[in-house]
Design a protein around this nucleic acid. Structure first.
Lengths: 221, 221
DNA sequence: CGACTCCTTGACAGCGTTCAACAGTAGTGG
DNA sequence: CCACTACTGTTGAACGCTGTCAAGGAGTCG
């Protein structure tokens, strides 16, 4: 075995990751399908979501370069996964990965536990966000989260559409658009590029403050 | 070791559970406290929740007789736990339980993984509920969930208040009350007892249908 | 280049919240 | 056991946040 070992004990650049490519919008795996594989984003981005019978969609999480997704402790995937943009993905058979873990660790299962626990923590925070925060707080929180995960670049290059953001935050794409426009008018962010998905965060501290203050929004014009 | 082994491999009536009692409303553990214990509800009910800085509350889950709670893979609790009514709780030191697991299982970690995975699945469904369902769907879903967990009794005896339900579903207590009244007027449920927490489900199939149909609600008077 | 999709903005509607009042219930203490 | 008090639940009225519907322009992918 070769390659460097990351925080989850998964080797990067190792032989058991087979590279695949997905066109934007294409499905990587479907809800309720047998969960026999594990995935890692090499480049691009992925959304995992659930659908209600009438088509309403709730995105559970976005997966960016380096993220592992498709981790299940049961037999089937509980989300559908789609490529948001053209994406390169590493795929490994579940048994292969877990088997290699067993050889390397005195406490097999610890690493899959760590991955599941990370998902749980994210979902728990997501519940709080969806249940008790208003539109402006949600947008502020989302921007802060993406900024952190993309390591606070000069310019935030979002791979996802307004509708994706809406389906992640429990809003409509119109409300997302309006909230971003409001923040722009307030000078909190700017769209310096041609694409509206390139966002410059001009006041990160203000954004963090807004993420947990329901009333500040109403003070904005 | 004695006692029967349940689905999670935790022995019931076993020696490592120390019994404690909590008055209704009292705190069992607090968010961010060291997570060195594991809990099981013997009788009564518990709520676990997060608070925003300004006091808004989001209940993550209710724990009923038999349920295990306080399972963490990290160092600290991520929720506060309170007794909803006077409650008897079994408490075990975390190391004790995990240690006993190790002796009994060839795959240590599998059982805590199972518990964490169960929490994750619940949180994922909760995200869908909060993000994409309206008030009537939420209430119908909640009643169906409680009915299932209490094993479809003749009369649903809810331990929690309207406000608790509201904070679980991301609503206000007034909206919860109004929705329940609407269902009562429609003959879907009834309050046969003196307490409004005793609910008789008169049409379970209708309730399940309502839980995933946003438009049916508007057809009601 | 052309046909999409994506994003923004406006006008309006409606769902759920907010504020308020009141009745019923239950817990507390004499 | 009863009276007191606080909590709980219901309902009404008005408001406002967010959704819905619509249109138009910008961007992007093939």
């Amino acid at each position: 075995m070769h390659g460097t070992v990351n925080a989850f004990g998964l080797t990067e650049g190792s032989s058991f990751w087979n590279d695949f490519r997905y066109r934007r919008g294409s499905e990587i795996f479907g809800e309720a399908e047998p969960a026999d594989r594990l995935y890692q984003v090499k480049s691009g981005a992925v959304r995992t979501f659930k659908l209600l019978p009438d088509g309403r969609r709730q995105i559970g999480d976005f997966h960016l370069a380096g993220d592992i997704f498709g981790v299940e402790s049961g037999d089937a995937y509980r989300f559908t996964a789609e490529a948001i943009v053209n994406t390169r993905v590493g795929i490994a058979r579940r048994e292969t990965v877990f088997c290699q873990f067993s050889k390397e660790n005195t406490f097999p299962g610890a690493d899959v536990l760590k991955l599941v626990a990370k998902n749980l923590e994210h979902a728990e925070n997501h519940v709080l966000l969806l249940g008790r925060q208003n539109a402006l707080e949600k947008i502020a929180f989302f921007l802060t989260e993406m900024d952190r995960r993309l390591e606070s670049p000069k310019l935030l290059m979002l791979p996802m559409s307004r509708r994706d953001i809406a389906d992640y935050l429990g809003l409509t794409h119109e409300t997302v658009s309006r909230s971003l426009s409001l923040f722009r008018r307030e000078g909190i962010l700017a769209f310096p590029g041609k694409s509206q998905r390139q966002i410059m965060l001009r006041d990160r501290s203000r954004l963090v403050q807004l993420a947990f203050s329901p009333d500040i929004g109403s003070q904005l014009s």
